[in-house]
Amino acid sequence: MNDNGESRKEAIGRTKEVLNAKTKTRIGFWNVRTMFETGKLAQVTIEMNRYNLHILGVSESRWTGTGRYKTNTGETVLYSGRDNNIHTKGVAIISKKGLEKSLMEWKSVNSRFIRIRLKGWHNNLNIIQCHAPTNDNEKDIKGLFYEQLQVELNEIPRNDVITLIGDLNAKVGDENIGAERTMGIHGCGSINNNSERLVELCASNDLVIGGTLFEHPAIHKLTWYSPNGRDKNQIDHIAINNIWRRSLLDVRVKRGADVGSDHLLVIASIRLKLRRTDRRDMHKKRLDVNKLKDPDVRKLFTIQLKNRFQALPVQENYSPQEMENINHLWNQVKTSYQDAGQLTLGHRSKKYKEWISQEAWKKIEERRDIKKKILATKSERLKHQQQQHIEKSIVM
C-alpha cells in the first residue's frame, strides 16, 4: 500500500484508464477567461473534479511562457502562453491525478495551441487544445491559425485518436448539406467565416464536429452568453476522427459549472469500440535504423527523443513504491524510443527472397511432366482393359 492507502494494482490501473473500451473517458473544454488570478486555478480544478473529468482543456489561461505544474491536489497542468510577458491568450491542459503516467509527450506550440499524447489501451489519444481568433480578426491572422493547426494535425501518427477541442469562435449552424460527413444537423446559430474554415479543415482531415451530432435542448448546446444575456452562440467545439465517430457518446454543456466566465463548460464522453485485429499488423516491424547514418535524420531523431523524455515525470518525484515498478519505467522509456523511431525512421521495407532456386523449380516441373505421363499411361491401360472386357462379353 502507498501513503494514501492505495494498492499498487490500483495505482497501475490508473495508468490504463484512458481510452479503455469498458469505461468512458470524459474530456472537458472551457474558456475560463483567465487563470492569472489568485485562487482561479483552484476553482477550475474543483469544477473539474466535481464533473469527474479526466482531461480539461483551457482557453485564455493568460499565463506567460510554457511549463508543467502540479497542483496541491495532484492534477498536472501543462500550459503554453505568450513569451513577451503579456498576460493575454494562452492555453492549457489539466489532467486528473494519476493520469500523468499515461502522458507520452506534450508540445507547447504557441499561445493558441498546446498538444498532448496519451497512451491508450488500443489506440493512443492526441488532444489539441486551441483558441481561435474571433470572427472579426483579419483574414491573415485567421489564415495563419488554421495553417498552424494543419501543421500540428500532420504530425499526429495515423492510427491515433484525434480530439481537437477549445474555443474555436465558429458558429457552424444546423445546415450540413454537402458536409454530412463533417457535421450533423444539431448545431446552433448561423454559419460564419470561422465556421467555414473549421468545416473545411475538418473535411480535409476526415474529422467530424461532435457538438452537432446530438439532439439536445439549446441550453445544453449553447456555449457562450454575452454579458447582457441577449446574444448566445455555440462557438466551443470538439472534433474527432470520423472513424471514431460512434465512440463519441455525447457532447453536452454543463450550466452548473462556474468560474466567473461568459463561456460554459462543455464535456464530451468517449468510449472506444473494440476492432478486429488486422493479422498483417501482428507481425513485428523493425525500424529502419540505417537511416541514422544520415546526419540530418540522426539530428531529427535526437530532437524527437529529447522531447519525449522531457514529457516523462522527473525521477525524483517518484515514490519508493513507484520506483519499485521497474517494468512501468522501462515501458515509458521503450515507448519513447519506439515513437521517435517511427516518426523519423519508419520501418524497413520487407524484401521477400526466393527460398527455392531456379534449379529446384526446374526439377519440380520435370517431376510434374513425369507424373502427367504416368497418369496418361495408366489411363490408356485402363481404357484398353475395359475395351477387352467389353469384347469378351460380346463373344460370350
Rank of each mutant, 00 (worst) to 15 (best):
E17N: 06
R26S: 04
T34Q: 06
F36C: 13
V44F: 05
M48D: 01
M48K: 00
R50Q: 01
Y51S: 00
T66E: 11
Y69F: 14
G74K: 05
L78W: 09
L78C: 11
S80F: 01
S80P: 01
R82D: 04
H87Q: 07
L99F: 08
N110W: 04
F113M: 07
R117Y: 11
N126D: 05
K139Y: 10
E155W: 05
V161T: 07
V161G: 02
G166H: 02
L168G: 04
A170M: 03
K171C: 06
I177T: 09
I177P: 01
M183R: 01
H186E: 09
I191K: 10
L201V: 07
L201W: 03
N205A: 09
G210A: 08
G211D: 03
H216G: 05
H216R: 07
Y225M: 09
R230I: 15
Q234W: 05
D236M: 02
N242V: 14
N242M: 12
D250W: 08
D258V: 05
K273Q: 13
R280L: 14
H283R: 14
K291P: 10
L292N: 12
D296F: 13
V297Y: 08
R298S: 15
F301Y: 12
R308I: 06
Q321Y: 09
M323A: 08
Q338H: 14
Q342V: 14
T344V: 15
W361S: 14
I370A: 12
S379K: 13
L382F: 10
